[in-house]
Amino acid sequence: MVKHEIECPTCDGEGYIRADGLPFGPDCEACEGTGWREMNADELAAAAERQAEDAASEPPVTMNEMHRAAWDQKQELRR
């Protein structure tokens, strides 16, 4: 089974909570001090939705296509 993890937003991936401006503090309870935690159901749904939107979007444009479009625009300006 794949374990979907994200950087813990509670401790910003540090694994501990800074207290009183000290460089270290107590371990983060959300991620148990690892800095990473499993995604919850809402985060998994949002990630799946973003992935589906990315898959349905237009394919990336190649450099040749960009150069050709720029050349065509330049030719239009000359007319």
Rank of each mutant, 00 (worst) to 15 (best):
A69P: 01
A70Y: 14
D27W: 12
K74E: 10
I6S: 01
N40C: 07
C28R: 08
Q75R: 10
E58T: 13
E32H: 15
R79E: 13
R18I: 04
M1C: 08
E65H: 09
P9T: 02
I17R: 04
E38C: 02
P60F: 08
E58F: 12
C31Y: 05
E43Q: 13
E32W: 14
M39E: 12
D27A: 05
R68S: 10
A46H: 01
W71S: 05
Q51V: 04
T10V: 02
C31K: 03
Y16V: 00
W36Y: 11
A47T: 05
G25D: 10
T34D: 04
R68F: 09
N40D: 14
S57H: 05
E58D: 15
G25E: 09
G33M: 02
E76H: 12
L77P: 06
A45Q: 00
E65V: 06
H67E: 13
A19C: 10
G13R: 07
E32T: 09
P9F: 05
E38T: 01
E38R: 07
P59N: 12
A30S: 06
M63A: 15
L22N: 02
E76L: 14
F24W: 02
D72T: 15
K3N: 03
K74P: 00
Y16G: 00
D12Y: 15
M66E: 10
T62I: 02
D27P: 05
V2P: 11
H67K: 14
A56F: 11
A55N: 12
G15Y: 09
E5P: 01
M39D: 05
D72H: 13
A55C: 07
V2E: 14
E38M: 03
G13I: 03
S57V: 03
A48D: 07
A70D: 13
G35N: 01
Q51M: 08
L22C: 01
N40S: 06
E29M: 06
G15K: 05
R50K: 15
R68H: 10
S57A: 14
G13P: 04
E49A: 14
I6G: 01
E58G: 15
C28A: 09
M39I: 04
E53G: 11
E5K: 14
R37Q: 06
A30I: 00
P60H: 11
G21F: 02
I6V: 02
A45G: 00
E14H: 14
N40P: 04
M63L: 15
L77F: 12
G21K: 00
E58K: 15
E14T: 11
K3R: 10
D54M: 04
A46Q: 01
E76V: 11
E43K: 10
E38P: 00
K74L: 10
G25T: 10
F24R: 02
A70N: 13
S57W: 02
L77K: 15
A19K: 14
R78F: 02
P59S: 13
F24C: 00
E76G: 11
A46N: 01
H67P: 01
W36N: 03
Q51G: 07
R68N: 08
A47L: 08
K74V: 03
P26M: 02
